[in-house]
Design a protein around this nucleic acid. Sequence first.
DNA 1: GCCTTGACGAACG
DNA 2: GCGTTCGCCAAGG
Length: 107
Amino acid sequence: MDTEFEDAVRILLIQVPRGTVTSYSQLAKLAGYPGYARHVGRLLSQLPDDSKLPWHRVVTASREISRRGTLAAAIQKQLLRAEGVALKGDRVDPALLWVPDWKPSGR
DNA sequence: GCCTTGACGAACG
DNA sequence: GCGTTCGCCAAGG
């Protein structure tokens, strides 16, 4: 609530269903701040432990686990796998990406 | 006020 | 597919 940005990202993150993942840039864009991918990462890094936000469902644009700051990388993989997310090494299955407003009849 | 770092991304070669 | 470079904005030193 300090800023609209972190509030928007927070809400979006909560809307991410279990078993799916999203990317920093995607969250930033959906939050209304395209190009703020780094801000998302910074925000998550400052998230308190009592935050019920599924930060572990956030991966890079390459669907890889965070490389910078190896602090939570191992935990993230563990949590994702616990949710049924298929991990290909340090990469997440592209089919498990969270798509807001997914149109199965489209494309 | 300037420089470096940071849970990043996209473009190039 | 991989390594490098530039761009992005913000916080910390």
